[in-house]
């Protein structure tokens, strides 16, 4: 799940390319992470050209075949080709991870910026956020899923909704620190309008921690998707996602372990890669910690 960062407010301003390079030199793991992630994205993009067949085509006669030359990763309960499902599953899992990260940062940032600055709004919004946070994300997701129906968009909305309060809290704490900074106070004294202060002075300073937070959200969203599938509130079952393939095959884990193994390895590798990348970025963007590494 998300590492709700305790990132101290950054001392530096926006990141520079040199800092990135420097950190990646110090962090070979982050480079490995980046490469793995890139490979997974390529896998997702190139899915139709990687020797796959229709991942939804069922052939009951050929059900539960062990991995072989014909079926590289074997077949599942309905005789679907697991290799094709895993490859196409990369598309769904990665889209969910990236979309959740993007939208929760976007929404959380907007709410956090405004509430961090408008005190009267703050109390109300934070109570609502507390309320949202106190409902376990899985519960929220199940209700939402039942509300409409299982679809990828709904999975994204459900997980995003659960992540937003955490981003809001982070942004708010950043804003609260930043507004005390002399240059912001000076801008206020000079009569700069609120939107301008937010965009010119506050926003740029939230980029770095949010970027890092985004990678963690992305990683955790992919895991949460798997858990939702397990409970039956995830991606629609005919559309393959890594979590979905594993959840559907879970009762067979002792009989057809390959059904869980291949998507599991892909999911773990990707989550690992994204997390490593995030760690690398955190160290690059936060010199105070990076010095210690």
């Amino acid at each position: 799940m998300t590492a709700v960062t305790t990132l101290p407010a950054p001392v530096s301003t926006s990141p520079t390319l040199r800092q990135f390079k420097e950190a990646f030199r110090r962090h070979p793991t982050a480079i490995v992470g980046g490469i793995v992630l890139l490979l997974m994205i390529l896998l997702a993009l190139l899915a139709p050209w990687l020797g796959t067949v229709d991942p939804q085509a069922v052939t009951p006669i050929k059900r539960l075949k062990q991995p072989s030359a014909e079926f590289w990763f074997g077949t599942d309960m309905l005789g679907r080709d697991v290799y094709s499902r895993v490859v196409y599953g990369a598309r769904v899992s990665l889209s969910i991870g990236i979309a959740v990260a993007f939208f929760s940062i976007l929404v959380g940032l907007s709410i956090g910026l405004v509430t961090g600055y408008l005190r009267w709004l703050d109390a109300v919004v934070m109570r609502v956020m507390d309320g949202l946070m106190s409902i376990p994300p899985v519960l929220l997701a199940i209700s939402l899923m039942a509300l409409t129906r299982a679809s990828i968009e709904n999975v994204i909305i459900a997980i995003t909704l659960a992540e937003v309060p955490r981003v809001v809290r982070l942004v708010r704490s950043l804003v609260l620190t930043l507004r005390e900074q002399p240059y912001v106070e000076a801008a206020v004294a000079a009569g700069t309008s609120l939107p301008r202060i937010l965009v010119r002075h506050i926003l740029p300073n939230t980029t770095a921690p949010l970027l890092v937070q985004g990678t963690y959200i992305c990683a955790s969203a992919m895991i949460t998707e798997a858990i939702l599938s397990f409970i039956g509130a995830g991606t629609p079952p005919n559309i393959p996602s890594w979590g979905n393939i594993m959840a559907e095959a879970r009762s067979l884990f002792q009989i057809a372990g390959y059904l869980i193994f291949f998507p599991g390895v892909c999911l773990s590798l990707t989550v690992l890669a994204v997390n490593l990348l995030g760690d690398g970025m955190r160290d690059a963007l936060d010199p105070r910690l990076a010095r210690r590494m």
Binding site: A219, F230, R250, G264, L272
Partner: peptide, 22 residues
Amino acid sequence: VMAFSVLGFSLPVFVFAYILIT
């Protein structure tokens, strides 16, 4: 420790539970 702390995030809890049971 760091490797473990990253790995700990990377498997859905149900997969891990099945492995433990087995």
